[in-house]
Design a protein around this nucleic acid. Sequence first.
DNA 1: CGTTTTTTCTGTAACGATTCAGAAGTATAG
DNA 2: CTATACTTCTGAATCGTTACAGAAAAAACG
Lengths: 362, 362
Amino acid sequence: MANEHEPAKPHRITISTVAAALGVAVSTVSNAYNRPDQLSAELRERVLAVAAELGYPGPNPVARSLRQQRAGAVGVLFAERLPYAFRDPAALMVLEGIASTLEQAKLGLLLVPGRDDDTTTVQQALVDGFIVYSMMDNDPLVEAALKRRLPTVLLDQPPRPDVPSIIVDDEAGARMATEHLLSLGHRHFAIITDRLIETHVRPSHAPINVQTHSEATFFVTQLRLQGYRQPLEQAGIAWSDVPIYDCNDNNEADGAAAIQILLARTPRPTAILCLTDRLALGAIVGAQQAGYNVPEQLSIVGFDDIPQATRITPALTTVRQDHRQKGLSAGQALIELLAGQSPTSYQRLAVELVVRDSTAAI
Amino acid sequence: MANEHEPAKPHRITISTVAAALGVAVSTVSNAYNRPDQLSAELRERVLAVAAELGYPGPNPVARSLRQQRAGAVGVLFAERLPYAFRDPAALMVLEGIASTLEQAKLGLLLVPGRDDDTTTVQQALVDGFIVYSMMDNDPLVEAALKRRLPTVLLDQPPRPDVPSIIVDDEAGARMATEHLLSLGHRHFAIITDRLIETHVRPSHAPINVQTHSEATFFVTQLRLQGYRQPLEQAGIAWSDVPIYDCNDNNEADGAAAIQILLARTPRPTAILCLTDRLALGAIVGAQQAGYNVPEQLSIVGFDDIPQATRITPALTTVRQDHRQKGLSAGQALIELLAGQSPTSYQRLAVELVVRDSTAAI
DNA sequence: CGTTTTTTCTGTAACGATTCAGAAGTATAG
DNA sequence: CTATACTTCTGAATCGTTACAGAAAAAACG
């Protein structure tokens, strides 16, 4: 019968700890935080004071979220590995656009990590919706996100019924780039790409054959290749004669390495179509180092029009797209979805060919 | 009695909808998802099948989080406005480091938006902890985050007791930069900074006076200014004779504008200390456009060593810090905190002066 | 065949808030 | 002074899970 030792102090301070300390109902404490008009100013003061004294950190957001059925954040699924997101200038502008919209709506932006094999992070993300951007077409994470049945927007992904999609007219852009080079008289083309096939099945240093084209697992890659192909064939150039070099990563070094290989081919290509600006910038530098003059001996076209495109000499001819607007549109569409409205289910953003100094007549 | 009209179809499908449909206990359905070993493979199959059929999106993560007391994400408080985060190269490397660590721990990274006046987003963020990075010293959002009483790590913030802090030895770096210029014989200095005083109280185009120095509300700004000041005074140069120009934003354009003003002063400064590389890069370009040779007529030192620092001509002399490591350390410290361990409460990262071509003897 | 062990499944109490109908108590109106 | 309307506060239901103790059934044991 001896008195037990002190009851373990209630490690966790909740709304009811505070209520008990004051001798009021829990709903009163809740109201003190969320509906000041529901109780007298005097009592509210006291509640807040006692709460502070007890070290109550305020209403638990998770509990609130459960009750209110909203998380106040949007999940962004992007890139194989999260850190990559912070390296690609084009992707960053897109993220910036997304962030801007969400910020205005006071929504958090949750970057969801996840290697393809493990979808738990997607399944357990505390979000009200998803934006899926630039994921591999068959990435299980995308499936997992859609299975959550939350409002979702696809950006640069293969469209699906019932899911609003925003895509850029990459195919038209690629066509414009190709037609530009054709009109300058070029007949010998080569293509530098990345992410053509799965990350872990990277090609050797030989330009890969066109057959692999159908394996392209990134939607925008497919679109761009398709856009290159059509005008070439129309001009009587066999697609199978166009070497495609697939880089390991989207960066300048890989672009520079690629161009070396391609320039060694016979016939030597005089026009290089690059799937991204970073690859193109690398290609320019690589070509120059190999002693070629751009654009006199070699024309190079990029894709994206990132800020660096104008800083190089010669300034890069490229296909411009409005990255920030992409992000804004995606964010906007998702916010409408969250508000119960139905945004246009399919938006296509225009692109524009920007002719600068890296292309010239042959 | 006439039969009522169809009961409204259960709009929301939960674990108990599935359990009811199967005639099993809810705990069984839960186990089917989380503990396959707790039920027969055959029943599990059936549960999953029925769930799929009903369109059950899987266990609600918010409810799970409430029960398990973990959110699976970390909040990052950074920069006045979220989009800014995506523009500063140095900050991006830090974010990349943070993201890397968190990804390995399978934690999401929640970018928390918030204008100073409204702290609700911080209060309601569904996270297990915070990383506070480069916020204004007195930003209410920081207070709000600390009030949550979650594991928190401060990065480039004024240290506080009981909160692990990671800071860079900015002061030493600034000292090294200054001493370097002094040893080259420079006597007339000027400083280009940003974020010296509150965003909305921006200065005119006149270099602001040194007195304002004490108003600096960003911890690292203070440290760097302090680091510039000490060796200067030691060399007999009055701090009040050193003009400080405060830019509106940390970018090249503002740096270029700043240098124009400073070069018009008498005596004309021959050594410019820039608080960031972006400002320094702008200053170089601005000086060159104004007809000055760098470094022959004007020495310029940056701070951060961002990749672009080597791409400009002349290559920028600057103070290097390991941005990625900063992020990694912060992430690591937070993960230890979340695991109940106590990381070193105070880490100071070293810096290094990198002498390139933008500085020369007078 | 009775006992023990193992497997499979169930029921219920948390988790920590918010919401809403309504009970007291007070003020206003007629 | 009674009826009506506000204020202010309370209690219980609810959000959708998971954890845990234990019931029921099946398997293993001697």
